[in-house]
């Protein structure tokens, strides 16, 4: 199968993730959409790696996974502490600092 098709899929997943970040209200779901975007990047890296015939892209995919895991640790800690003090994870409720 032509690897370009995987790039189209990566772009589609990235767009779905970005749209989700913009329209969803729950911080956890927003965060999951960010993870979807990162995974779309991974797919693009691996597809390009195959097109170019070098392994750089596949190595980067591993790095991205590690970074995403670290981001989950930090992100969930912050979102859970917000949820515990407000009993809501809605990003619209967090508006103490609106102008």
């Amino acid at each position: 199968m032509n690897p370009v098709n995987y790039l189209y899929l990566a772009a589609l997943l990235f767009t779905i993730g970005a749209t989700g970040v913009l329209i969803r209200r729950n911080a956890i779901v927003v965060f999951m959409c960010v993870e979807l975007m990162l995974n779309a990047c991974n797919l693009a890296f691996v597809a390009f790696s195959r097109m170019h015939g070098n392994l750089d892209g596949q190595v980067i995919a591993f790095f991205t996974m590690v970074v995403a895991a670290a981001e989950v640790v930090v992100g969930l800690a912050i979102i859970v502490s917000l949820f515990r003090s407000r009993h809501s994870a809605s990003v619209d409720d967090a508006s103490l600092m609106k102008l």
Binding site: L7, A18, F31, V34, A40, C41, A44, A47, G57
Partner: peptide, 19 residues
């Protein structure tokens, strides 16, 4: 949330430049 969103964009940019 915004920082992670922005770094996802940066990463996709890196993917395209690598490609």
């Amino acid at each position: 949330l915004l920082g992670a969103f922005a770094s996802a964009f940066l990463l996709f940019g890196i993917a395209l430049l690598y490609g």
